[in-house]
């Protein structure tokens, strides 16, 4: 028996919108720790890891570890029927081939049940090693989204370089090239507008902008994004989910042969 009650149901709606472009089908894993997902895109270039901790739910009951295969587009279709202020409860019985999403309006005057068929998904679980990163950039998520969008109108790839001067995003294409430099900025009154750069050593890596743009769909979950970079390692683009956990995107670099 599984019953997870999330008062801020809009979080789940946003999570789905953030990942459904990248991944079509995925297993949601439920355990005593929380509600989680790890899935790669079909080309094995990008991976999404989601964690919503048990403590973040108003009610969290998970009698035994359960893995539920869901089509994310179908799940998104159902969650779009929940109001932004609705409380969402996820329910499943042991051995059942369906999951139920229950939406309650804040005034409790409307309650809806949506039952969705589960699917068997063979998915490979990757062990992601803990890495020391050469540079960690924390910046406003809206700014990062804007940069990725702007650069993708010029080129297909972005070179992210971190130096003492700041973090530089560069691209080039048929019509020309572009460089955007963001400097460290902690003097702002609002912490959510800060740009903070922790650099052990300079690093420069190349990534496909198509994926970066897809990751920025998570921007509504968090005011800030953290980008962790190391030479010849996948970049980690992390959006914290208030009080609950995170959504992390890993993207393999493009490397000169």
């Amino acid at each position: 028996m599984l019953e997870l009650r999330l008062v801020q149901g809009s979080l789940l709606k946003k999570v789905l919108e953030a990942i459904r472009e990248l991944v079509t089908d995925a297993n949601f894993d439920c355990s005593g720790t929380g509600f989680s997902l790890q899935a790669m895109d079909s080309s094995h270039v990008a991976l999404v890891a989601l964690l919503l901790r048990a403590e973040g739910f108003e009610h969290y009951r998970c009698d035994r570890n359960l893995s539920m295969g869901m089509n994310l587009n179908n799940m998104a279709k159902m969650l779009r029927c929940a109001g932004n202020d609705d409380i969402i409860t996820i329910k499943a019985d042991d051995g059942s081939d369906t999951v139920t999403f229950m939406f309650e309006s804040p005034k409790q005057d409307k309650i809806a049940d949506f039952e969705m068929k589960l699917m068997d998904i063979d998915s490979e679980h990757l062990g992601i090693p803990d890495s020391e990163y050469q540079a960690i950039v924390r910046m406003p998520s809206a700014e990062f989204m804007r940069i990725c969008k702007d650069l993708s109108s010029i080129g297909d790839t972005v070179i992210i370089s971190v130096t003492k001067e700041g973090v530089k995003f560069s691209t080039s294409g048929e019509i020309g090239s572009a460089n955007i430099v963001c400097r460290q900025n902690q003097t702002v009154d609002k912490p959510e507008e800060a740009t903070v750069i922790e650099m052990q050593e300079p690093v420069s890596l190349t990534f496909a902008l198509r994926y970066m743009n897809s990751f920025t769909k998570a921007s509504s979950l968090s005011d800030q994004v953290t980008i962790s970079l190391s030479s010849e390692l996948p970049v980690v683009v992390e959006y914290k989910i208030a009080e609950m956990g995170y959504i992390r995107f890993y993207l393999a670099p493009k490397i000169e042969e």
């Binding site: 679980h125 190349t206 393999a252 493009k254 000169e256």
Partner: peptide, 14 residues
């Protein structure tokens, strides 16, 4: 020109 790597070479299957 650069080549797009896949995640399999960085993360081990578990």
């Amino acid at each position: 020109t650069s080549t797009q790597k896949t995640l399999d070479i960085f993360f081990r299957s578990s």
